[in-house]
Computed example of a mutant assay.
Amino acid sequence: MTQEYTPPKVWTWEKENGGQWASLNRPIAGATHDKDLPVGKHPYQLYSLATPNGQKVTILLEELLAKGFDAEYDAWLIKIGDGDQFGSGFVEANPNSKIPALIDRSGDSPVRVFESGAILLHLAEKFDAFLSKDKRPEMLSWLMWQMGSAPYLGGGFGHFYAYAPYPMEYPIDRFAMEVKRQMDVLDRHLADNRYMVGDEYTIADIAIWPWYGRTVHGESYNAGEFLDVKSYKNLLRWADEIAERPAVKRGRIVNKTSGAPDQQLHERHDASDFETKTQDKISENA
């Protein structure tokens, strides 16, 4: 569909703009309703959903636990489709009303941390793990690259390819070009590096994998063929290796509410929750 549009001198919010998330979009911040956040028994209280941004944090927490750190956490489900992120308790944890939000209760008083990259850096520095001591600027560069690049993949390409009211050639072409350029950046870098920072597995990998690993595996927006993801051989090799890490397998299903039932763990409050999920799968197949 081609339609001429002349922007008004002053934009005003007069109607929903269509698309899958239209009912949740608004040009103002703040809470829409009163709702306190639950608090569990562990030092780290995570309020999230298993989007790529949410998976970053649960993967890191599971990696920390796998290394023996005291990083036990409660992961509470925030249903963004229901508007949970606009509850007063969540807005207090994250005034930007986006998942994930972390309340660190390991100290004398609770500390809020929001924005997934900030949460990764906070936890990694706290435990002195999954950081590159020799190549810290390189690690931080790739971490910030992800934070700056993913909106083109999700809010740009993903929105216009999968969620917009109707297909529009110009924005789809524009953002497909950028996503393919980003994958080429990664593919070229990973030709000479096992991980994003040489041979060190760091929070840069943990940040990038849920977005671009998923995309190169053809799982983002059912656009694998459209983006010709199989042509990015080095990126695929990296994505495959990280996908096989046990902590990644656990972390990626926490707060997940879609897909195969055995790949969903709506909330996580103890390591045994994964064992229960496994037993449920055995029972279903018996």
Rank of each mutant, 00 (worst) to 15 (best):
P38C: 00
Y201F: 12
G18V: 07
E241A: 14
R112C: 09
P137K: 07
G154K: 04
H33F: 09
D34E: 11
T215I: 15
E284V: 14
R237M: 08
Y212S: 05
G155P: 05
P43T: 10
G218D: 03
D104C: 14
V39W: 00
R252I: 14
R237S: 11
I80A: 03
E115F: 03
N25W: 05
L46A: 13
D205E: 09
H189R: 04
P7V: 08
E169K: 14
D104I: 08
L121N: 10
N96T: 13
G259F: 01
Y221V: 08
A150T: 13
R250Q: 15
D262E: 15
T32W: 06
A239I: 03
R26Q: 05
I208R: 01
Q279D: 10
P100L: 10
G19H: 05
P137R: 05
E267K: 06
H269S: 01
K98R: 12
N255G: 01
R136C: 02
Q20K: 08
M144D: 08
D184S: 09
A71N: 02
I203P: 07
Y161N: 09
D280S: 14
Y163H: 10
E72V: 01
G87Y: 02
L60H: 05
M139E: 12
P171A: 09
N94F: 01
R105D: 07
G224L: 05
Y166Q: 15
H33D: 03
E219V: 12
P27K: 06
A176Y: 01
R105P: 06
E138L: 13
D70K: 15
F175C: 13
A207K: 02
H217F: 08
N53Y: 00
G158I: 06
D187H: 03
L235I: 13
E241K: 04
Q146D: 03
L102N: 04
G81W: 00
P171M: 03
V229M: 01
L235K: 10
Q182H: 10
I28W: 10
V57L: 09
Y161D: 08
M177W: 11
S149Y: 02
I242R: 06
M177H: 15
W211D: 04
L143C: 06
L153M: 11
T58G: 05
T6V: 15
D82T: 12
E63G: 00
D128Q: 06
P7M: 04
D36G: 10
T32P: 01
E92V: 07
D187R: 06
E14K: 12
Y44R: 12
P43M: 04
A150K: 06
A129C: 11
K256G: 12
Q85L: 03
G30E: 04
E267H: 02
